[in-house]
């Protein structure tokens, strides 16, 4: 009894504090933001975080708080959704984006009037090989198809070479024509541990669209990950932190029973790829400035990793 009371009190305090913070932040930041960014309608936050719900419900709430899908997808546009399907793993391992979330994003795009919604990933071919295995096992192929998403396996002919303006290490990248030609690009990564980049979130997920990713490894992973974002930032980032793989990432073990997964039931959305990575790092339990590519991308002015400078809306279900 006493414990429950204590808990409630703590909850109350923290809730009050966070509410106060949000309110305070809105007051402090809302106005200058409004004055500076004229095309942005008032009240649209930089980042929305939702927790304690199922992936579909959390996305619906988050996009509503972000001003609705119509902010991002207009009638007749083609959309590309890029989940993380890099490894042949079942969703319970937490190595791939939640299939229900992908389905909900596609449905929401079509509801906003999208003409076509494509889903693809350029899978890591050295683990149980092909796209077929990855797409099937992750549950994303089936989920996307029920929502009329067009699931695309990438082959060698799909890529076109682009220049990275201002890229320090990464000067060119081979990107699928699909991404180059689409109207709206939605980045839908999963938050997970990564053995060589500490964490894999939104920026790291974009490494999964280029063909020359071995160049990243060879010339410096962190700098290249940050450099690619100079080329094209996604129109919207949706980070799935429902099941978070806490170790042995990015692939995780085959057997979900031996996967070190925490059920964090959290979802983040933002236009700012650096901010969303910073927020996701916090959710994982790491500081953004300890993650090489976040720090570099912040310094290259791709986005803002200093969370207290941002207008963040949180919602606990």
């Amino acid at each position: 009894m006493a414990d429950a009371k204590k808990f409630n009190r703590r909850e109350l305090i923290s809730k009050g504090l966070s509410l106060g913070l949000v309110a305070g932040g809105a007051v402090i930041l809302g106005k200058p933001d409004f004055l500076l960014a004229k095309e942005k309608p008032a009240g649209i936050p930089d980042l929305v975080a939702v927790k304690n719900g199922e992936p579909d419900a959390m996305f619906k709430k988050a996009i509503e708080l972000m001003g609705g899908m119509n902010q991002f997808v207009k009638k007749g546009q083609t959309v590309v959704v890029k989940p993380n399907i890099g490894f042949p793993r079942v969703p319970e391992v937490g190595a791939t984006t939640n299939p229900l979330l992908i389905k909900t994003i596609i449905e929401s795009c079509y509801a906003a009037g999208a003409k076509r919604v494509y889903v693809f990933d350029n899978v890591v071919t050295t683990t149980s090989s092909n796209a077929r295995n990855c797409y099937k096992l992750s549950g994303i192929e089936d989920a996307a198809k029920t929502a009329r998403g067009i699931v695309v396996p990438i082959d060698d002919f799909s890529f076109r070479r682009v220049k990275i303006p201002g890229g320090k290490t990464l000067k060119t990248a081979d990107v699928p024509g699909l991404v180059l030609d689409c109207d709206v690009f939605i980045n839908a990564p999963v938050l997970k541990h990564h053995s060589s980049a500490h964490l894999s979130i939104a920026m790291k997920n974009l490494m999964g669209i280029v063909k020359n990713r071995m160049e990243y490894h060879l010339t410096g992973l962190d700098q290249c990950i940050a450099d690619f974002c100079l080329y094209r930032k996604p129109d919207l980032n949706v980070v799935d932190a429902y099941r978070v793989l806490m170790s042995r990432g990015p692939s995780g073990p085959v057997d979900p029973k031996s996967a070190n997964v925490q059920l964090k039931k959290t979802l983040l959305i933002s236009k700012d790829i650096v901010a969303i990575d910073a927020a996701a790092a916090r959710i994982f339990g790491k500081e953004p400035e300890d993650i090489g590519y976040i720090k570099i991308a912040h310094a290259q002015k791709t986005g803002n990793m200093i969370l207290k400078e941002l207008k963040i809306v949180t919602y606990a279900m």
């Binding site: 683990t127 060589s196 700098q223």
Partner: peptide
């Protein structure tokens, strides 16, 4: 520099 390509794929 971070690389880790080998570790990512080790089953």
């Amino acid at each position: 520099n971070n690389c880790g390509a080998c570790g990512e794929v080790c089953p």
